[in-house]
Amino acid sequence: MTLASPLAALGRPVLAALAALGRVAIYAGQTFGALFSKPFYTREFLSSLLHVGWLSLPVVGLTAIFTGGALALQIYAGGQRFSAEAVVPQIVAIGMVRELGPVLVGLMIAARVTSSIAAEIATMKVTEQIDALVTLSTNPLKYLTLPRVLAGTLTVPLLVAVGDIIGIMGGFLVATGQLGFNKATYIQNTLDFLEGADVVSSLVKGAVFGFIATLIGCYHGMASGRGAMGVGGATKTAVAAASVLILAANFLLTSVMFGS
């Protein structure tokens, strides 16, 4: 054991992660390029809209309503310590819209959509369906990846918007039902406090997270190893990578948009 070996042990995974990030970036570029050449597979796109967007609504709604409710309770309890419990509507709104809405929806999409995309494409890979697509003159990047990534980028912001609203509603229900807030004042305070920039940041984050979640799912599915182990490995790696990337992107976006 030399002095340098702990450094090497640290350096190797970092280098590997950077190389992987580079490959993902190239893949993202190719996907983006595929947007500008024919054909565009409309049917696959519509089906992706359904699976990524519409069918994720229940999960997003449930996540948001419980989070909003818990947030209201925490802010009330915490605020009471310096008699600032009246700020519940404002903090719930800003917390949901700026951070928790996009992050939680992003993570739920990573769990629900990234995993299913990765498993589906990996299974197609190991059963030679991807090879079959190629021999049938169909570019998998256009047929499989682009529709999913486009659907993710377009629908996840909408899911985030829905999550924001439902989360605020969760806070509203708890605050008015349990903590004695006046309904009209609560809504008024929320609306007065939120700014356009908060909402825009929420949607931008949603689009970026939707892009990451679907792209990573496709990428790891395509890179799957052979057999059932390969599919399992691809799915696991995809969900972990998408979640970490979403959190990292969230930090970056927050620093850029609110860091000054």
Binding site: E128, Q129, A132, L133, T135
Partner: peptide
């Protein structure tokens, strides 16, 4: 045209 060993149906 190609018939794959495992069928490779979608």
């Amino acid at each position: 045209g190609m018939l794959f060993q495992g069928g490779a149906l979608f």
